[in-house]
């Protein structure tokens, strides 16, 4: 089941990468909007950055035991 889902995910990623080349942005405001697979890279790296930075901030400083304010 998990393997099946994984392959579906890989295939759809490949498909959207190709679609990125088929439908380029016709009115780009910035240089990165001209790159067909920019959102693929940004989505992946952005998500990892969000998780790691937040978890680091949380464990180093922000997260306290549930009875902290009691």
């Amino acid at each position: 089941m998990v393997k099946k889902l994984k392959s579906i995910l890989y295939i759809s990623i490949a498909v959207v990468c190709i679609l990125g080349f088929v439908f380029p942005n016709k009115h780009p405001h910035f240089w990165w909007q001209k790159i067909p697979v920019f959102d693929v890279v940004y989505g992946f790296i952005g998500c990892i950055v969000i998780v790691l930075v937040s978890k680091w901030l949380g464990h180093a400083w922000l997260m306290k035991k549930e009875d902290y304010y009691d």
């Binding site: 959102d39 693929v40 989505g43 952005g46 998500c47 990892i48 998780v51 997260m63 306290k64 902290y68």
Partner: peptide, 24 residues
């Protein structure tokens, strides 16, 4: 593209992203 790759990254960190019994 953006959302699919978010899903992919979520998959990688799926174990880390469960709830933790804390307050922030």
């Amino acid at each position: 593209q953006l959302l699919l790759l978010t899903l992919a990254a979520f998959w990688i960190y799926i174990d880390k992203l469960g709830g933790e019994a804390t307050v922030s």
